[in-house]
Design a protein around this nucleic acid. Structure first.
Lengths: 123, 123
DNA sequence: TGTGCATATTTAGCAAAACGCATATGATCC
DNA sequence: GGATCATATGCGTTTTGCTAAATATGCACA
């Protein structure tokens, strides 16, 4: 009923997106769930710092985590944030290359399941 | 070509919206242009403070001003910000009551063209 | 079972920036 | 001169951005 108190909530949500690191995380997550170690390699930031931003997003109800062995996977759960990302960055193209090659086991340089590595080099 | 440098620009734009006062200003401006004195009455903040936020928005290329006699009217010029506002707050309904009653001469309590005032009291 | 290694979270801390606001001054138009 | 608006300055408080250290937690393997 008081429209200005709602606006505060919206401003809070925009503030979540108004942060390069968080925006980059969310842009990655709207493509596919990602484990923390991959986000670390992707953003080039120290891991505790990424955990901090993930926590901000988690406590705001924007993302959720699910553990799988050693790894923790995060995924986007807020449809409105997804809509905002689409409105701002454009929708994710179906054929668009995801940041990772294969999902189930993290493939970023650190986690390095050696499977595809030499393919990348020669092809 | 470098998608992450673009993300910085997008984050900047989100940051503009992630501010209660600016968001309230933009929400008003997407309905209709407003003069500063009306925004002052609408937000209940001192005039220099509002001018300050308007300047932020102006220098970011989100709004533009046009002078008309004593008054300065601001309007929204960034279509992408308008799209984000629509995505977040919902589109402006056609019949929705604008904050002001009549545009050409500001009608907020301060500028008070006395025209409609007693109507408000009795009806 | 115990030890070690790797992933991830949490806590603490700090410098820098942003915020909220007041006040004073200036410009412009009537 | 009077009103609207912009700009500038200052100040106390809060938030941000980031680093570093400490603390779980799960897996592997002897």
């Amino acid at each position: 009923m008081t429209p200005s108190s709602d606006l505060n909530d919206y401003a809070e949500r925009f503030k979540l997106l108004g942060h390069p690191v968080r925006l980059q995380i969310l842009d990655a997550l709207r493509r596919t769930p990602e484990c923390v170690c991959h986000l670390e390699a992707l953003l080039g930031k120290p891991q505790p710092y990424i955990s901090q931003q993930l926590r901000v997003l988690r406590e705001a109800g924007v993302v959720a985590d699910s553990k799988d062995g050693l790894n923790v996977y995060y995924h986007l759960i807020d449809p409105q944030v997804a809509a905002l990302l689409n409105a701002a960055l454009g929708p994710v193209l179906p054929g668009e290359r995801s940041h990772r090659q294969a999902l189930p086991n993290c493939v970023c340089p650190k986690c390095a399941a050696p499977a595809r590595q030499m393919i990348t080099l020669q092809a």
